[in-house]
Amino acid sequence: MTTTTGGAETAPSTIAKRRGPRILGKHPLGLLFSAPYLVFVLVVFAYPLVYAVYIAFHDYFFTAPGAVVDRPFVGLANFVDAFTDPDVIRSFGNVGIFLIINVPLTVVLSIVLASGLNKVTHLKAFYRVAYYIPYLTASVAVVAVWLFLFNGSGLVNQILGPLAPSPSWLINSHWAMPSIALFVTWKQMGFYILLYLAALQNVPNELYEAASTDGAGAIRKFFSVTVPGVRPATVLVLLVSTVTGANLFTEPYLLTNGGGPNGASTSPVLLMYQKGIEQGHPDEASAIGVVLVVLVLVIALLQNRFAGGKD
């Protein structure tokens, strides 16, 4: 009884669907469900992205709402204006220093801590919380502590005694950028440990057992099984940490008081804020942004080429 009614109901409905408009697929409702998100992506990402490029190539300035003004196309003039400014060149160099310190340190430390955490049985929940807390906490809140830990008479210098740099870390033009890189490494590490922990679940245990029977020690197993096994995660960590580094703003703004000393820790985004919004040159700021994104894309492609393998 039930089977016959079931059959009788499904047959016409499939025919009806076949006859109906297939342009939108089997469940056109999917498009309706996704419409708010698609509008959101269009309004907040796609349109501003195009607009940013437009601003970068035009003589753009802030006007009162509704005012119609002429904004002529100026070709590369904004790029020339921005990149003949030594501060801008310096800020890109600073991000370079940042990435050279931050990215390798992040990959090495998070892979080591994640594989240790993966094998431990006691206190696992405690370690997970401990490692993740800096990532969860607002930069503004932890910056406050680091300011006091690393200032001239702060705890770090008290412990280091005569080894402390002078002037102190954040006001020393050699140490300002490396200090920021260390801070960000510390703050973001929990997220990358989590990514590696997830990736480690996919490394088959048999590989470790096989390596053991072949007489491999712990270190050999780490380099021959773990590291290749989590390579997709490494590609992802490289990408995310590079993008994070390129987006640096809060740390130089607060830790080194606006990119000090003397521009030794300015970042391109900090300059975008200063030039674009404080000084009213959004066109130059957009030009900086476009170059920044293109550079990030190039770095990401190179990383993918050399670290990605077949993935």
Partner: peptide
């Protein structure tokens, strides 16, 4: 998720 939000700050601020 990989579009750097910071590139968008100028156009978003204007809009």
């Amino acid at each position: 998720q990989v579009v750097p939000f910071q590139l968008l700050i100028i156009p978003l601020y204007v809009l």
